[in-house]
Amino acid sequence: MTAAARYAALLQWLRSNDADISPKIDLQPSSRGGGYGAFLTEDAVEGELLFTIPRKTCITLADSIEDDACGEGFKALIETAGPGGNTVVMAGFMARERIRSLESQKPGSIVDDSSFGPYLATLPWERGMNNQEHVLYWDNKDIEKYLKGSMCYGEALDLRKEVDVAIRVLNTIVGKSIREFRGDYLDSGFQWPWEKAAQASEEKLKGPPEGLAEAVKGAFVCMLTRAFEDGDGDEEKLVPMLDMLQHSDEPNISHAMRKSDGAVEVRARQDLTAGQELLNQYRSELEETMPYHRFFTRFGFVPGIQEEMTNLFEDKSSIFFAQKAEI
């Protein structure tokens, strides 16, 4: 399926799930580097509602812990790990749903697609997709070659270790479910407690099912680069279409969660003209805790830079490498 077809399917899926999307919105290749963006086909005035994304189309923590197959395991993980386990749990849910969606597309498959299938198909599950260059997708050799000695190096290693641990933990929760819908696992019916324990140990020894490690890694990238919080203690969530808008430190849209039903409304921050691309602000570029090298580690890009990141690392750019003071 082409990129244009994937985004057309996304719009159709959103509208079929009660999303209110202005006819002035068109999805097309972004003018800011790579991937797709949202553009206006007609003028819009300040405050105009551009699109509304209902809560049921967002991927939330509730979707994970209420999941029939893995919800109890996810709840137990959060109880053990605390709030820090929320991201891991959502990554596990997304990874399982991504694999389900891919299985459903195989010829002759009887696996049902994920209810989020058309949305998942637009997310950056691998390096280069939507121009994504996140360090989680780099191989160890490139990490050592380009990042060693930079201000990104330690953070990149820590993040990769966190994901490696998450893959092992999540395998014990979602591995069986994936094998079940692939037909690789047959439920033998009633089991005594010791038989269940033995079977659980056997599942751990099998290691992650094919594709799980890559899907968990991709889910972490999606969470790091696309998750939103709406304040008031609301959990992180992925919001279709809003999360595809490109970054600008001078955004031309605003977004807020509607208290009545949790839907997310996106409005024009100012008067806009036909042809303009809608831009959001991921984090302020003036924020002391988000210098440009951390922007790269978190989001996989540096604002305003279109050049290949590896070139900047090879040139020991001051964005990534601390400079010695001249005497």
Rank of each mutant, 00 (worst) to 15 (best):
C58Q: 12
E288L: 11
G47K: 11
S188I: 10
R283K: 13
N280G: 05
I327D: 14
P118V: 00
G207P: 07
H255Y: 14
R6A: 12
A3M: 12
L27S: 10
M151F: 02
I78F: 03
E48W: 07
F93H: 06
L238C: 08
A91H: 03
R96D: 00
A325Y: 08
P54T: 11
K24M: 11
D184Q: 15
M94C: 09
T41Q: 10
E288R: 11
P209H: 06
F320Q: 01
R168C: 09
T297E: 08
S248D: 07
V264G: 05
M257L: 14
P240M: 03
N280Q: 13
E42A: 13
M257R: 15
V88Y: 02
P303H: 05
V266Q: 04
W192I: 12
L278E: 03
F51H: 10
S317Q: 03
D112L: 15
E287W: 10
L123R: 12
R15K: 15
T2Q: 02
E133F: 04
A274D: 10
F301Q: 02
R100S: 02
G92P: 00
Y119C: 08
C152Q: 03
D243C: 10
P303T: 04
E144K: 14
R294A: 13
G211S: 03
F301N: 00
S31P: 00
G85N: 02
T225R: 02
D112G: 05
G183N: 07
T289G: 08
F220L: 01
A325H: 09
E236Q: 13
Q105M: 10
E133M: 12
E308D: 15
W194D: 14
A274G: 07
V88T: 10
K237T: 14
E287Q: 14
Q270Y: 13
G37S: 08
H247M: 07
N130T: 06
V111Y: 02
D112S: 12
G262Q: 10
E277A: 03
P303N: 08
A263N: 14
M1C: 09
Y292P: 12
G300C: 07
P29M: 07
L61P: 14
Y7D: 03
